[in-house]
Write a protein that binds this DNA or RNA. Structure first.
Lengths: 135, 135
DNA sequence: ATTATCTTTGTAATTGTTTCAAATAAATAA
DNA sequence: TTATTTATTTGAAACAATTACAAAGATAAT
């Protein structure tokens, strides 16, 4: 929990109890969680926590560059504390999202383009995960 | 409209009036439209058209492989009749989505992976478009 | 012509997200 | 410290996208 405190400061985010709890969850659970997953996980130990706070908190984290919002899931926003350049895999069957590999300089290189000022890239793979193949 | 008819058959989709109209719109308007955009565009000339039908129709098109659903926009599902391997760009400011370039064999190659059975890839770039820079 | 099947429609329910104003907590000034 | 300002959290309500579902309509098969 103290770690999250420190971690937040690195991104100039004032650490409140709620923010530290959310960041702590993200750091310890690398599952690209939805807002709901975060809320449900923290709610038992923080009964007064509001879902709006979780929304606010993640908006702030994204704005400060501490967390990356993923578009890979059409249903819910997904959040990733790992801000390094890497691709994701989403299972069509169970919906789980996994880190799949680091992007090499080739892929990660943002192309020059006269019509668009490009500032980021998201690479997503889709298919069926090991666990779901076994069923 | 006859073209759409033919086009649908290529994907073994039985062409109804509604399906042909939707496909025709997609073929003539390469804007990666949302359900709502399609509905609003067709509604004037097809007053009885229901939004549920547009949802059903696009689900069917995707299932039959005639259309690709894009995850690039967190708010709404986006649909693309161009099923060739190409990347997209989304403007953070106006939300418009554009084809940006064809994927070369390098990028499009689906990697072998022991944990996941990968069947598709989506590459998305984000930034600001020409038009929005000018404002 | 009758029956069965497929497709469309409209309404209602559900889900994810946003808005907003009041309540609480933290920071600053007197 | 106490008072005052500022930031954060909260819960309720509004909103938007999507899904569920049953009835109506169209198409195909007998």
């Amino acid at each position: 929990m103290l770690e999250s405190h420190q971690y937040l400061r690195q991104f100039s985010i004032k650490p409140s109890v709620q923010r530290s709890a959310v960041m702590n969850f993200l750091l310890k659970n690398r599952i690209h969680p939805t807002i709901d997953e975060i809320y449900l996980a923290l709610s038992p130990s923080m009964p007064t926590l509001s879902k709006t706070t979780v929304y606010n908190t993640l908006d702030l984290f994204v704005e400060k560059g501490a967390v990356r919002a993923l578009a890979i899931d059409e249903k819910n926003a997904r959040y990733d504390v790992d801000i390094s350049a890497h691709a994701h895999f989403k299972c069509r069957s169970c919906g789980s999202i996994h880190d799949i590999f680091d992007l090499n300089a080739n892929m990660y290189q943002l192309p020059e383009n006269k019509s668009f000022k490009i500032d980021s890239i998201e690479i997503s793979y889709f298919g069926i995960c090991e666990h779901c193949i076994g069923n």
